[in-house]
């Protein structure tokens, strides 16, 4: 136990502020949230993440949001298992034909306002996988998207910035 405490002290606080240049990876589309909703989400945002066909690298970088450097919980952001509690659907990958039904079901199970944020080049337009017998292309071909976070994969800082921008957070 002492060794654990010692290591915790040695590590200290490593969380970093977000750099403003990350905003260049973010593209907002569709309608903005109402002020009252925005205020609520700013302190507490629950996300359901769905991989609709990604290569899994986008998930790695979303995962990194939980590490102490990006520490997404400082903004009140948590990931949930159930879409029923989710304010936001974070989608990665091109939409694989075999995932289309499950993705729509997750979306249908969410309460409004059902924010959808598409992460990565594949979620934007299918990326290198394109559109084919097995891939529907970008997420917008299946669901209404509120924001895109570009990159292949986008960095954790860009993803965090994009999530906050999608809820119109003033930080």
């Amino acid at each position: 136990m002492l060794r654990i405490l010692h290591q915790i002290f040695r590590t200290g606080i490593v969380t970093e502020p977000l750099a403003p240049e990350e905003e260049k990876s973010v593209e907002l589309v569709g309608e903005r949230l109402e002020e009252a909703v925005r205020k609520v989400f700013e302190g507490s945002l629950t996300i359901r993440m769905v991989d609709a066909g990604s290569c899994n690298a986008c998930e790695l970088e979303i995962h990194a949001l939980n590490n102490p450097i990006y520490n997404c919980e400082r903004f009140g952001i948590t990931f949930t298992a159930s879409p029923r509690f989710a304010d936001m659907l974070l989608v990665t990958g091109p939409v694989a034909g075999n995932m289309e039904v499950a993705l729509k079901r997750a979306y249908d199970a969410m309460p409004p306002p059902k924010l959808v944020v598409a992460v990565g080049g594949c979620a934007y337009d299918g990326g290198i996988f394109g559109k084919s017998y097995a891939s529907k292309g970008g997420v917008a071909s299946v669901l209404p998207v509120s924001a895109y976070i570009h990159g292949c994969p986008p960095t954790p800082a860009a993803i965090l910035t994009g999530i906050l921008a999608a809820i119109g957070s003033k930080r």
């Binding site: 066909g53 690298a57 986008c58 995932m99 097995a134």
Partner: peptide, 26 residues
């Protein structure tokens, strides 16, 4: 998450294929 990778290779050049190979499992 089948997205037709093996078939996709057949429509790319050998050089482009390296980018696709790098996204088989990121």
């Amino acid at each position: 998450v089948h997205k037709g990778i093996e078939k996709r290779f057949e429509s790319l050049s050998w050089e482009e294929g390296a980018r696709l190979a790098g996204r088989i499992s990121g």
